[in-house]
């Protein structure tokens, strides 16, 4: 598949934007963790996400997207990142409950890609992602004991946002345009089921209840297909300046 169908380009753009903002958030929080080991892991994950973005961005460029635009030369409302990464409004537990679902959802979307010449790259990314996702789950398990109310409240917001990033439940094998084009080997509906089952299992028997999570989100009628979310919102202008490196231009080495 040399030329990807438009919905597939949007699908990849949303993954890239999510990874770009994930890398940014991991970097921002890499000195704020409860232990040095959390910080080292966060810094490492940040570097890996940026590495993934670099590779995926070049594939998007081959599909006609401008590289500078991808790397931040655009309005905040043009980013299609998972909405749970727009801002982190809380402390470390909220940060974990915001980044973990976004990272897992982005991996599930990537893992579904069936394009043959991307498989080696995806395998390499999967080797990094194993440790991101395992770390997040280990952390969420301990936080479910030490800060259950905060985690529960955060997940009630972030899980539906991550589900909106994955896509609406109505996108099954007959209606999901990315699946029907042959770009992915499983539909959004199937990815959602795996995602929901994972978090249901993870928190089963803990003090965190997911009963208040809207697992039906997003509403397919109001879902923005290009930005893979509902209800607008975006990263901040300060985030954008940091992504573009505006203030750091002074220190650039050529």
């Amino acid at each position: 598949m040399d030329e990807w169908p438009d919905p597939a380009v949007d699908y990849m753009q949303a993954i890239v934007d999510t990874k770009l903002i994930l890398g940014h958030r991991y970097g921002q929080w890499a000195l704020a963790g409860p232990s040095l080991e959390d910080d080292i892991g966060g810094a490492s994950a940040s570097q890996e996400e940026i590495g993934h973005v670099r590779q995926l961005a070049s594939r998007l460029q081959a599909q006609g997207r401008d590289l500078e635009w991808i790397h931040g030369d655009r309005d905040a409302t043009e980013f299609a990142n998972a909405a749970c990464l727009d801002s982190i409004d809380g402390e470390w537990p909220t940060y974990m409950a915001s980044t973990a679902p976004a990272d897992r959802a982005a991996w599930y979307l990537l893992d579904a890609i069936a394009i043959e010449d991307l498989q080696g790259m995806l395998t390499k990314m999967g080797e990094d992602e194993y440790f991101h996702l395992e770390y997040h789950d280990a952390r969420l398990e301990t936080l479910a004991e030490s800060a259950p109310d905060t985690i529960q409240a955060a997940l009630e917001t972030t899980l539906p946002q991550a589900l909106s990033f994955i896509g609406p439940a109505t996108y099954d094998e007959e209606t999901d345009p990315v699946f029907t084009s042959g770009f992915t080997d499983r539909s959004v509906a199937e990815i959602r089921e795996a995602f929901i089952a994972h978090y249901t299992d993870l928190f089963e028997g803990t003090a965190v209840s997911l009963d208040g999570v809207d697992f039906d989100a997003p509403d397919p009628d109001t879902w923005d297909e290009a930005r893979r979310r509902v209800g607008g919102g975006s990263i901040s202008e300060a985030d954008l300046r940091q992504l573009r490196g505006t203030e750091n231009k002074l220190f650039e080495i050529n």
């Binding site: 959390d38 892991g41 440790f131 395992e134 789950d137 280990a138 398990e141």
Partner: peptide
């Protein structure tokens, strides 16, 4: 705080 987390910390 847990075995699972210890594995990840050791790796990090």
């Amino acid at each position: 705080d847990s075995d699972r987390l210890a594995r990840m910390y050791a790796r990090n």
